[in-house]
């Protein structure tokens, strides 16, 4: 049972990530690209690790994966924020609204 749920979660995570990567190539402008990809990527990461946690059941392994998820959820938005901020600080032009 948990095998099936895990596999479904991982499949969903794969779909998320492929959309994220597709999003990177589709949008022409940097700010849009970073907006889409970082959000989708974090969600993909959480679903993938959720799938692993479900499949491996309740033991130390799952606890470690949980720690990784908590750390990643905390730091990934920070990193993306500092990239966007550095782009903004160097006066990288904001996209016109028609894109």
């Amino acid at each position: 049972m948990s095998e099936l749920v895990g596999n479904v979660l991982m499949g969903v995570a794969l779909v998320f990530m492929t959309c994220g990567v597709y999003g990177i190539f589709r949008f022409r402008h940097f700010y849009l690209r970073i907006l889409i990809s970082s959000k989708v990527d974090t969600v993909g990461f959480i679903t993938l690790t959720a799938g692993i946690m479900v499949k491996s059941g309740l033991n130390f392994f799952t606890l470690k994966v949980l720690i990784i998820v908590v750390f990643f959820v905390l730091t990934n938005p920070l990193a993306t924020h500092s990239i966007a901020r550095s782009a903004y600080k160097s006066q990288y032009p904001l996209p016109e609204d028609d894109v």
Binding site: F30, S38, F61, N76, A79, A84
Partner: peptide
């Protein structure tokens, strides 16, 4: 250059996932 750093950041996130799956 910020595209490159974004690539770098997402790439290392992907690699963390690859290691998690290998560990599993």
């Amino acid at each position: 250059p910020w595209d490159r750093i974004l690539g770098f950041n997402l790439l290392s996130a992907k690699i963390v996932m690859i290691i998690a799956i290998c560990a599993f």
